[in-house]
Amino acid sequence: MFRFREALISVYVMWYRQVKRFVRARSRLIGSIAQPLFWMLFFGLGFSSALSFQEARSFGLGYMSFLIPGIVMMAVFFTSFTAGISVIWDKEFGFLKEVLVAPASRSLLIFGRALGDSTVAALQGFIVLVVAYFLTPTLLLDGIPIFTLTVFLTALTFTCLGIALASKVRSIEGFHLLTTFIAMPTLFLSGAFFPVETMPEWMKILAFINPLTYSVDAARKILTNIGFFSLPLNLMVLLGSTLIFTFIAAWIFEKTTVE
């Protein structure tokens, strides 16, 4: 028996909670923007003056313009992935545990939560973009609607990946392992800091199976008009990864138990 109204309410309520939390916790907002800002300022400006390397120049881009789409996506990625993983605590010791005994579909509840986390991650991405625009006013802003879509799909993909992984982990050590073994490689292999085309062949293969590569490439295409893949391909891959990970996260959460 599927009741559409109840389903919508479940999704909406969980979305509402995540967004409300974000609005409340201003310190979290500042923290999440400070990190990408430091990357742009210290790493970006430092690197672009130390070596404006061949690839960046052949693109006709300064390193800053090359880097900024990557940093925006990095911010979205970290926020959403961490939010997804934090479901562990929420489920074992927090609010979500109480939701497990509600007479509502768990898949829909977790989907609502993922949507909420993605909204928050996307918002943070936008704030980073605004800051970045002051540093590099040459960014192209006419593709903002598609950029929004890209950011949102990226956020949803990695929130759901985080949720799926989190349900297999029960300790703080596991949490750190996930950050080290999933988050760091995903970021470095995404082309956020250096182009995919100059990577060694074996590394390229890893980059190609990494959804974040397509997010970064799409963002770069939209904001600087330079990219490795075509924009439709990027969006297709992201849509696919979003569907797959959302489905997996919902499926795993549906049969979750508390121990």
Binding site: V13, R21, F93, K97, E98
Partner: peptide, 23 residues
């Protein structure tokens, strides 16, 4: 046994979310 309230939210918001989830 553990407190499962959302500490960032108000009492009313906690009750509201729960009530809505319960239909």
């Amino acid at each position: 046994q553990d407190i499962t309230l959302d500490r960032e939210l108000t009492g009313r918001e906690n009750l509201w979310i729960h009530g809505r989830v319960y239909g």
